[in-house]
Nucleic acid binder design. Structure first.
Lengths: 349, 349
DNA sequence: TTGTAAGCGTTATCAT
DNA sequence: ATGATAACGCTTACAA
């Protein structure tokens, strides 16, 4: 039997500073360095300071992959949003990133393009990358996705929605729809139109429609089928939708738009068509984007604090990861912002 | 000497499927599985198919951290942008994410908040996470950042700019400023104002100002000190700036805004002040955001294709990582979009 | 309190 | 063409 050591060419190593380098420089073991830098274990205060200083001077940054592999946890949080084109989500992600960054976590970001299968694929990739937590948008996700997350024990939070079965940070989109509809009903409107994003891709849009419908039904009114138009989420599509709405036999006097972006398009069409807003026609949006204060007239809308959703989602995830107690139900406040595009129904003034 | 095996409590393992599981199920070694899945090495075609199928059926996803550790490379690309509030950057990141996603990479996203030190910190974190490539915005970065990247041999691309010393995907912001100024000069304007973002935080803003200045000087004109206003990047700030501009002794007849967002604010102020645009005053933006087609009148601006910057940055990075040849200089086309907010100088019509 | 070394899930080297 | 196994950089169970 051969007892000599097998020799083998060393593998290509990164030229970065490692725990070994720090340990050697400090005259201690790698275990001690690790303990100091991770704040667990017990190391004499004086030694701690010395190790920390040496690590600092050497410019040591722990290799995240190695750490993740050894400890079976990572400092990466994932988020999958439908699209970054929607500023609402961009702002939410921005706030999320900021908050987790303060806690030493980094953000792995993916987009689902409003598709559940894509979303599942993205989540698989994020899991492979070892995320410690995940933020999603809405509550309609692939069952396989929920299973996967449960199996891997990865904390999840659904944003921009409320959810019976999973932790969430958001608001009740049904209530949002109801609220804006009730406001217009109180203004005497009877004939309603609605322009929304594709409900096929957005449980939020579907909820808002339901809210509007509910409010109308309570007053014995209804949202006529031909007065509900679903469009891709673009200003120009909002304009097209409004044009279609104004060509029907019964013209609505109040048009609720699922988002401000669509409302801006609707408003632009009213302008072009010479329709007086809010004299002849009231238009309302949902979101309160920066722009909405600067349309003419300024847009009446519902304020939905995207940044707060991001921040509180981050806080939920961090707390959950670190084992601190947190509520799984996180309602974020919404507000009706009355500006210039809404008024009493014509002839009810 | 003690020759018995040391026993030790097993460490907490993840319950995910590993190469071992696949290897066992296929009756081969882990090496073979790895070779099949990574497409290197040489494995009999029939075996390849079998292994691939088994891996598929088992739902095997390689552990990214372990892979990164063993292979010293990762499938993660990093990006640090000033802010996600700026839709321009959001769109660029969106395109970048999409393109690298198609190639099996994921996106680690961080924000610098327009601060070089923050940016350096974020890049450090991304490097620790083992990014295979990095996209930054602009060309003004901490020297330490450049050193770090060089030392770690991480490919970098600077977006939204041109750069003498580093790979870039973007356009010459000086030329953009010059172009819009020349257009207005040709319209007979002599008195110019300019509203821009804080140059302190943006080499792009500084470049655009220089471009405007250059154009004016060529015609023997100048941008007066009190006619250049730097503001945070908000619509309302654009409005404030315009108000200030209109209160001075010499009122400009043409105001160039560093971004469309500022231009929207400026336009709103002109409206409120009862100033006729473009009769009395021409206003131009830079960016061509979706909104700019829907202001009244629609905004004249420079089109800067953010999505193309993202896509081409992704392509540069991927090519570089995979050792394919690519150009380090990537100019993206910009266009003057003449719409309704600009016209001949008053009295020159 | 500190050190030793096993083990995390892969890849890549060497042997067969 | 395939298998055995060292090595990747770190954390942590256990020994000292």
């Amino acid at each position: 039997m051969n007892t000599e050591l097998k020799k083998r060419a060393p593998r290509r190593k990164s030229n970065a500073i490692s725990v070994m380098d720090v340990a050697r420089a400090a005259g201690v073991s790698t275990a001690t360095v690790s303990r100091v830098l991770n704040g667990n274990g017990t190391v004499a205060p004086a030694l701690q300071d010395r190790v920390r200083e040496i690590a600092q001077n050497l410019g040591y940054t722990p290799h995240a992959a190695a750490r993740a592999l050894a400890s079976q946890r990572s400092k990466i949080i994932g988020a999958v949003i439908p699209s970054l084109e929607n500023q609402n989500f961009a702002l939410g992600v921005f706030a999320l990133q900021k908050r987790i960054g303060e806690a030493g976590y980094t953000l792995l970001l993916a987009c689902s393009y409003y598709d559940q299968e894509d979303e599942l694929k993205q989540v698989r990739a994020l899991i492979a990358d070892g995320i410690a937590g995940l933020m999603l948008v809405g509550r309609s996700h692939s069952p396989a996705l929920y299973e996967l997350l449960a199996k891997e024990r990865i904390p999840l939070v659904n944003g921009w929605t409320v959810d019976q079965h999973h932790p969430y940070v958001g608001f009740d989109n049904v209530a949002v729809g109801r609220r804006i509809a009730e406001y217009l009903l109180d203004l005497g409107h009877v004939h309603f139109g609605m322009i929304t994003q594709m409900t096929q891709h957005s449980d939020r849009a579907a909820d808002r429609i339901m809210g509007v419908r509910t409010a109308l039904q309570t007053r014995g009114l209804e949202l006529r089928h031909e007065h509900l138009i679903e469009m891709p989420h673009k200003i120009i599509e909002g304009q097209m939708a409004m044009r279609a709405l104004m060509q029907g036999p019964v013209r609505p006097t109040a048009v609720i738009c699922g988002t401000d972006l669509l409302a801006v398009g609707a408003l632009a069409e009213a302008h072009e068509a010479g329709i007086d807003v809010p004299g002849e026609l009231s238009i309302a949006g949902i979101n309160d984007i920066e722009f909405s204060s600067f349309t003419t007239p300024p847009l009446t809308t519902m304020r939905l604090p995207a940044d707060e959703i991001g921040t509180r989602s981050a806080e939920y995830l961090l707390a959950h990861i670190e084992g601190r107690p947190v509520s799984s139900q996180n309602i974020v406040p919404t507000d009706l912002i009355v500006r210039g595009t809404t008024g009493r129904a014509p002839g009810r003034g």
